[in-house]
Structure formats: structure tokens, C-alpha cells
């Protein structure tokens, strides 16, 4: 289970949160002009990254605020938490050496700042 540092409430257990999926997907500015493929891309297609992923979380059983999290999906390390509307931070993540490979450390919510 993850320990998530809500920017409003501090560290709480993941059970209090719900994940809103990939972050920084912008709603199309010109909906009537979009082709079916462009709609599919906006609605359904996802990067589903193995490695550093930016995603949205909601503190649904707490302050009910949305915020962004940068997490390494290969290790479950949470690398940064930042507000909605902010640009994703530039981060070094411990990605697997090969695309499908496994990282050196297993899963676990280790904070890189406490190294």
C-alpha cells in the first residue's frame, strides 16, 4: 500500500485516495472539429508507462482536493507531489534498464528524499 503526501493534509494511507489516471491530458479545445480517431485518443488511449508516470490523485476520503503525483510504476516509488495546473517537475527516475525489465529494487513506497 502506498503512503501519499497530500499537499493539503500531509502523509496519509492510500486507502483514503482515489487515482484519477494519467495527468496532463488536455480536453480538446475544438470538440466539433475532432475526428473519431482524435476522440479515441483523448478518451481511451493511454501511455501506460513502465517507469516515471505523472498521474492525478484525489484525496476522496479526506480534503477531497485533486493534485498530481509523479510515481515510478516499475517500483511504486512516489517521486514528487505537486498542485493541479503546475507543470510536471523534471525528475530522474530509477527506470528499468530494458523496457520490459525489472528494476533493481522491488515494489515499495520509498521516498527518494529520505535516502
Amino acid at each position: 500500500m502506498l503512503l501519499i503526501n497530500c499537499p493539503y493534509c500531509g502523509e496519509r494511507e492510500q486507502e483514503e485516495f482515489s487515482c484519477g489516471g494519467e495527468a496532463h491530458i488536455e480536453r480538446p479545445k475544438n470538440p466539433p472539429e475532432l475526428s473519431d480517431d482524435q476522440w479515441a485518443d483523448y478518451l481511451f488511449l493511454r501511455q501506460n508507462i513502465k517507469g516515471l508516470q505523472f498521474e492525478r490523485w484525489n484525496h476522496s476520503f479526506g480534503c477531497r482536493q485533486w493534485f498530481n503525483v509523479a510515481r515510478n510504476t516499475a517500483t511504486d516509488e512516489i517521486l514528487a507531489v505537486y498542485h493541479m495546473g503546475e507543470k510536471p517537475p523534471k525528475l530522474e527516475s530509477n527506470d528499468p534498464i530494458t523496457p520490459c525489465g525489472e528494476p533493481k529494487i522491488g515494489s515499495g513506497n520509498f521516498s527518494t528524499s529520505k535516502k
Partner: peptide, 17 residues
């Protein structure tokens, strides 16, 4: 790992792992 393989061919899929 399908999304990871698909990315090698530049394909984006509607999958979440």
C-alpha cells in the same frame, strides 16, 4: 507489458496495467 511493447512500434493502446 503490451503497452511497453506497443510503444516500441510507436503505437498507443487503450490499456492500463
Amino acid at each position: 507489458h503490451t503497452s511497453v511493447i506497443a510503444k516500441m512500434a510507436g503505437i498507443k493502446l487503450p490499456l492500463e496495467s
